[in-house]
């Protein structure tokens, strides 16, 4: 019996033919990284390999690491495996990793979404025999509206707040979601202020050439009154803190896929919840999986057991794999984890 292309270990997804791990959660010698979020790109690996576009954020987050980069689609020979990175559409620089050994192709999706967000390299399906997929939102109750519709809802809300002389505070993850929102909203409505964690990522992404509107970093010296009708882009954990209270009687909102559920929306106790995720919705997951042509599917994080049963009913050979990935976490800080 030949060895599988990838195996699942307590340190991460392992490729014996190349002796590398993909998104490991414990220190290993060689790590291939799908994207820079903290649950996928962790500290302490001997060497890292990621896309050119993911590299600046990883260096920003992890400091001086031994990092080799590749272009999307570029094929590397490691050991007896052919390895290449393909756009996952999750955040700028995010990749699916394709591993081919002896003609058999496996793909690790990392986190992905199928809608083109205008900022990340759009998701590109990769044909394979086995597909390792996330399923953070792997239930039929999760269906995303088009990004343009959500952006219009946010614009309307911002405009109404500005008309009433109130600040608008929108919580979103510092890496990915915040920049996606920045590029999708109508920046002409008013000034845009940013939390330090968001602005740090903005600077990294601007430096690599991504078009983002002008923003103002909030510092202890910032006078909120100098920016009437502003949109304040904050990390989720900053909502409801003294940091946010400096803006007075502001209207608060939160953008996440979880906002699709009324219960979660209410628990956040924000005024508005906008349903916007960097993960695929139900239809997105099913389309993406079908387009790989794979017959074997491994579900890593999310509603895994339900999703596996669904896939089995659709004729796939499906299994659940326990990993340390977290998907879209609504409660964590978001300065790096989750989305």
């Amino acid at each position: 019996m030949t060895e599988p292309v990838l195996t699942f270990t307590d340190r991460g997804i392992y490729c014996p033919a190349a002796d590398v791990f993909i998104d490991p959660w414990r220190p290993v010698d060689r790590a291939l990284i799908t994207h820079g979020h903290a649950d996928h790109a962790r500290d302490g690996m001997g060497r890292y390999l990621a896309t050119d576009a993911a590299a600046p954020v990883m260096r920003h987050r992890l400091g001086a690491i031994d990092l080799q980069t590749v272009a999307y689609g570029e094929r590397l020979r490691i050991g007896s495996a052919d390895i290449s990175f393909h756009p996952a559409g999750h955040v700028p620089g995010s990749a699916q990793i394709r591993v081919e050994v002896g003609g058999e192709v496996w793909v690790v999706s990392g986190d992905y979404k199928t809608e083109d967000d205008g900022l990340s390299e759009p998701f590109a399906p990769v044909r394979c025999h086995a597909f390792i997929t996330e399923c953070t939102f792997g239930l039929p109750v999760f269906r995303w509206d088009a990004q343009t519709d959500v952006a219009r809802q946010i614009d309307d809300w911002w405009r109404a707040n500005a008309a009433q002389g109130r600040a608008t505070i929108l919580g979103a993850y510092a890496l990915g979601k915040a920049q996606r929102l920045l590029s999708a909203i109508d920046a002409s409505i008013g000034p845009i202020l940013t939390h330090g964690a968001v602005e740090n990522t903005n600077e990294v992404l601007r430096a690599q050439g991504l078009p983002l509107p002008d923003t103002v970093r909030v510092t202890p010296q910032t006078d909120p009154k100098a920016y009437p009708g502003a949109l304040v882009l904050a990390t989720p954990s900053a909502l409801g803190t003294s940091w946010a209270r400096r803006f007075g009687a502001a209207s608060t909102g939160f953008a996440s896929g979880w906002m699709a559920l009324r219960g979660v929306r209410r628990r956040r106790a924000a005024d508005r919840g906008f349903v916007l995720s960097d993960h695929a919705d139900w239809a997105g997951l099913n389309t993406a999986i079908a387009e790989t042509g794979a017959s074997r599917i491994f579900a890593t994080h999310g509603y895994t057991s339900i999703f596996r049963r669904w896939l089995e009913s659709q004729g796939y050979d499906a299994a659940v794999v326990e990993t340390a990935y977290e998907g879209e976490s609504i409660d964590d800080d978001g300065a790096g984890t989750g989305e």
Partner: peptide, 8 residues
């Protein structure tokens, strides 16, 4: 949980 605590 469910509802408002669906992901915990």
């Amino acid at each position: 949980g469910h509802g408002r605590r669906a992901n915990l």
